[in-house]
Design a protein around this nucleic acid. Structure first.
Lengths: 204, 204
DNA sequence: GTCTATAGTTTGATAGAC
DNA sequence: GTCTATCAAACTATAGAC
């Protein structure tokens, strides 16, 4: 009776191989650009030949897809591990900093997650799932502080995303736009009428 | 004595050929993506073979460079042709709409101008010149309405750019973020203390 | 200035032995 | 599951005839 155990062991090996390939793919993307990813290069880094990758991924785009899912899952986790201050404005600041830091830490990852850099690539529904979860969670988070209007949610997304893209475009590796996060969040908080930090949260 | 006239005629032909090639390059980029640009395809559209392009451009990146310059020059002109309302807030709105409309009209153009989509490509100083002029003009424009702080200028750039990128990422071809421009500009105007529209501009 | 010819790579993907 | 071998195609760029 070793059938089940063998299957389990095999599927673990398979999963480990997949992860190793994806890890190599990230490294290649970071060095040669997201569009500069090649199967040969990825395979070489895991001690394989290019055709062997097809035992683990159906195509090059399937690798992009897995990377997309991985990136959004990583962000989901990164957001979840933040412990947020009780005050809405302060919490919003922390979240904005979290997103900014994640999105400015890795250009190909940011391009894959948020920009349309690869001409043919569109994420599959499964690959897209974590991104949807993140957006749902953000909506719930903002609703928790009284921001329920869809336009207000979109405005927050655009505002923080704009800081990220401006950072990459005009000062990559610097802090020129990172320094504006608090100012931007406060501006937004005023616009959607979040209570000031000096206000008492318990009393109306 | 036909030397000068001949030279003039020849240089005009040359310039016309360059423009035709660039025009074809834009068409290819729009169809196959910015990174999907190929010399063969561009050449075919102007009735040439790929090697003939090297009589007009030194390399593929030289074509990207000319496109970059052309895009920013086109935006420079597009901004200049706007006639702006006298009131600062209204003028700022019009400018934001102008940028948004330009940047959401053509994805490869936007990617070339504002994102780092092509792994190896960096614009030359000459290609970059119109972009610098545009930023200088924006700074002067904002200074004219009392916004002189560098951070405030950067915040405006990030805010409007963020709406553009969110539009491309989450609702390409739609109006979901276009509808937020006025709200965003007003939010910004409040933050930098521009006078309200109802205020009298002549009196302090 | 445009052509043919071609060099010299590189690519994603498949077939079939082991 | 990984390999070798290979395909079919595409790429940028150069050389040299016309």
């Amino acid at each position: 009776m070793l059938g089940e155990a063998t299957i389990d062991w095999q599927s673990k090996r398979r999963e480990a191989a997949r992860q190793e390939i994806l890890s190599a793919a990230w490294a290649v993307a970071r060095e040669n650009g997201l569009a500069g990813l090649t199967l040969r290069e990825v395979a070489a880094r895991v001690g394989m030949r290019a055709p062997s990758l097809y035992s683990h991924f159906a195509s090059k785009n399937a690798i992009y897809d897995a990377m997309f899912e991985q990136a959004w899952s990583a962000y989901e986790e990164w957001v979840a591990t933040a412990d947020l201050p009780a005050h809405p404005r302060a919490a919003l600041r922390v979240r904005a900093h979290r997103f900014f830091r994640f999105a400015t830490a890795d250009l190909p990852r940011h391009q894959l997650m948020n920009l349309r850099t690869i001409p043919g690539f569109t994420p599959s529904p499964e690959g897209y799932a974590p991104a949807v979860r993140v957006m749902d969670e953000l909506r719930a988070f903002l609703a928790g502080m009284g921001v329920t209007d869809d336009g207000d949610v979109d405005l927050y997304v655009a505002l923080v995303g704009g800081l990220v893209d401006a950072q990459w475009a005009n000062d990559p590796g610097g802090t020129r736009y990172a320094r504006l996060i608090d100012r931007a969040v406060d501006m937004y908080a005023d616009a959607v009428h979040l209570p000031k930090v000096t206000d008492d949260l318990e009393e109306p």
